[in-house]
Amino acid sequence: MTSNIVEIDNLSFGYKGRMLHQGINMAFARGKVVAIMGGSGSGKTTLLRLIGGQIKPSKGEVRVDGQVVHKQDRQGIYKLRRKMGMLFQHGALFTDLSVFENVAFPMREHTDLPESMIRDLVLLKLNAVGLRGAYKLMPAELSGGMARRVAIARAIALDPNIIMYDEPFAGLDPISMGVVCDLIRTLNDALGATSIIVTHDVEETFRFADYIYFVANGVVAAEGTPEQLRNSDLPFVHQFVFGEKDGPVPFHYAAGDYASEMLGYEA
């Protein structure tokens, strides 16, 4: 058993000729909170789907607990996924089920626990995210931050080894953001799980992540602890961390000469 629970090895993936990833190598150590950062459209979310086995890589492989994900059959993938919990970008709560039923969903599907025990477990999970009092509500009655927390409770319902967060801070106010941020850290330590966070929120991530990968142009552009990255002199990292408008990542999408286009010459 290696110390890394998830390993990504020379992974390439793309749709229809446009390669999104070109040889990515990553390792996620057990018990750590690891962030994957990068600009919009750099394929961060796709990485999570590759880890979860929802899509197959064009080249290379992803290993979870030593098993190659894309070589598993359906049963095997489902078995691997039971070790994972995932928080989707907007929570992806089941809109036709109450908060209680949402959290109970994975338990009902995968265990034969008696109703009383499910009730205790669900309230336990909801208590962990501070929403035990809201168990009767429907998802439509929740605020964005609350919905995110319920979704976290659902993701940890079966005490997973790996918790994946897809943009956990997107669209949250600063208070909710801080709450979610603390939750990720405390849950990770309480469950002894590994957290993988996909985000582009620099400040929050640098505060609590153990290790950070920067993805750009289909490869890992930089990696290291927050400390190392803050002091990095790589121009890309510098641009990203300090939010500069122009730099290695250009402001303009690749285009012809501005002056000549405005003057009406055919490019």
Binding site: Q54, H90, A92, F94, T95, D96, F105, P106, H110
Partner: peptide, 20 residues
């Protein structure tokens, strides 16, 4: 509409990720 919205809001994906 229900299935389409479940898909659009990633509920179906979430289910898949829960091994359901």
């Amino acid at each position: 509409a229900e299935i389409g919205l479940m898909k659009a809001t990633e509920q179906l994906s979430a289910m898949e990720m829960m091994a359901v």
